[in-house]
Simulated scan of single mutants.
Amino acid sequence: MPTRAQRPRLTQSSPGQKAADIAYKAGLTGTPLPQSPIVAVCAVDHCGAPSGRRQRKPPATGMVRVRGSADGAPSHWYCPGRCAAIANARADLRTGGHR
């Protein structure tokens, strides 16, 4: 029996086959669109600024201090919302969720 690579490929000749293929692919044809970055750069000043041991006051109003992981990573100041959530998630990933 010939291997799969050696078997001839049948073309999609009937309109029903072509319509089924388009429906299966949800109309996606051609080249894919360029992907946007998953983590975009934040435009807020001082977002991601390192927090010193003695620095208890945020560099700007409304900043959230995210503790570093237990492996010795320092804490940083982030804008509330998306950036703080991403920083918390990254710290949890570094330690396996045990900070």
Results as ranks from 00 to 15, higher is better:
Met1Arg: 14
Met1Tyr: 15
Thr3Gln: 11
Arg4Tyr: 15
Ala5Cys: 10
Arg7Leu: 11
Arg7Lys: 15
Pro8Asp: 15
Pro8Met: 09
Arg9Phe: 12
Gln12Leu: 14
Ser13Pro: 06
Ser13Phe: 10
Ser14Thr: 15
Ser14Trp: 07
Ser14Val: 11
Ser14Met: 10
Pro15Trp: 05
Gly16Met: 04
Gly16Ala: 10
Gly16Pro: 02
Gln17His: 07
Lys18His: 12
Lys18Leu: 15
Lys18Met: 11
Ala19Lys: 10
Ala20Asn: 11
Ala20Gln: 11
Asp21Arg: 08
Asp21Leu: 09
Ile22Tyr: 13
Ile22Met: 13
Ala23Leu: 14
Lys25Val: 11
Ala26Arg: 15
Ala26Tyr: 11
Gly27Ser: 05
Gly27His: 01
Gln35Pro: 00
Ser36Arg: 13
Ser36Cys: 06
Ser36Trp: 05
Ser36Glu: 14
Val39Thr: 08
Ala40Tyr: 01
Ala40Val: 11
Val41Lys: 05
Val41Arg: 04
Val44Lys: 01
Val44Ala: 09
Val44Phe: 03
Asp45Asn: 03
Asp45Gln: 07
His46Asn: 03
His46Ile: 03
Cys47Ala: 03
Cys47Val: 02
Gly48Trp: 03
Pro50Lys: 07
Ser51Gly: 11
Gly52Lys: 08
Gly52Met: 10
Arg54Pro: 03
Arg54Gly: 15
Gln55Asn: 12
Lys57Ala: 10
Lys57Trp: 09
Pro59Asp: 10
Ala60Glu: 13
Ala60Cys: 12
Ala60Pro: 08
Thr61Asp: 15
Thr61Val: 13
Met63Ala: 14
Met63Phe: 09
Arg67Tyr: 05
Gly68Ala: 04
Gly68Ser: 03
Ser69Trp: 11
Ser69Ala: 15
Asp71Arg: 05
Ala73Met: 13
Pro74Phe: 00
Pro74Ser: 05
Pro74Gln: 02
Trp77Ser: 00
Tyr78Asp: 00
Cys79Ser: 10
Pro80Asp: 06
Pro80Lys: 03
Gly81Lys: 01
Gly81Ala: 00
Arg82Gln: 07
Arg82Gly: 02
Ile86Val: 02
Ile86Leu: 02
Ala87Val: 02
Asn88Cys: 11
Ala89Met: 04
Arg90His: 04
Arg90Ile: 08
Ala91Met: 07
Asp92Arg: 13
Leu93Asn: 15
Arg94Lys: 06
Thr95Tyr: 04
Thr95Lys: 07
Gly96Arg: 01
Gly97Trp: 09
His98Lys: 08
His98Arg: 11
